[in-house]
Amino acid sequence: MADATTRPLPHPHRTLRHTLRAALPGSAWVVLPLALSALVFLYPLALVLHEALTGGGAGLDTGPALRVLGAHIFRTALTNTLRIALASTLGCLVIGFALAVVLSYVPFPGRSLALRLIETFIALPTFLVTLAFTFLYGSAGIVNETLMQATGAALPPLDFLYSSWGVILAEVTVYTPFVLRPLMAAFSTLDRAQIEVAASLGARAPMIVRRILLPAALPALMAGGSLCLLLTVNEFGIVLFIGAKGVITLPLLVYSKAIQEFDYPTACVVASANLVLSVGLYALYRAMVGRMGGGHADLV
């Protein structure tokens, strides 16, 4: 190519591209797909927002929206959502960190099998874990049956599954791998000599975890944690499957208003609130991943 005297042969793709470029103005190649995706994704979204802000009538009317946002049920759903999401995320972080430390640094037989198993959790549908939990801890589950037979109790002694604790437990189980993965990646890049030097300087395991591993894991914890928060705020399947009576979250509220009560305006308001929450958390997540630096962004 550097030789100016040899004329490059017309490349087939190049020619095609040139032909197409000639046929359409350059900007069309950007605008067209954007317009298409806008039609498919943004238009329904806009409809939801529009519905939320007009209350089903014509013209801007924030009255109904404010009424929904002020309603007791919305407040409850919002606090439930945040409480469950925060608790689950915290659980994921704690358990994920502990698991990552053990899996990375404590040699035990079957370690690679355990790793493989935890990895597959990411691929499982969320309701499957919930279903398994129902079989285990549900009122007719194995644990309760056994306990009832053993103690002769008339009522199932374990009923945490049908409270927010059940939801949190299921969400922690489902989402811990999402924290575990970036953590394992972070630990795999940590120089083992650091840990050895720390040990030879007299540090015991807790100090090594606190002063060496935790700082090294911090970016992964932040990124994994905000991803967890994002996913748990929007979690629907688990909450629905557990069927805990008192546990109404925002996605569940949207579902019950829209599908069960045909109250679309209210559903749209709640959905919009959920959307704002999600977008906010997503921004947080991107910021966290960004702070991990370009080289590490692909770990998450």
């Binding site: 120089d191 000599a193 050895e196 300087l201 060496i212 700082p215």
Partner: peptide, 13 residues
């Protein structure tokens, strides 16, 4: 024991 390794292994944080 004092130990010094090839790549220093200073604690980066």
């Amino acid at each position: 024991i004092g130990m010094v390794v090839q790549n220093y292994a200073l604690f980066p944080h």
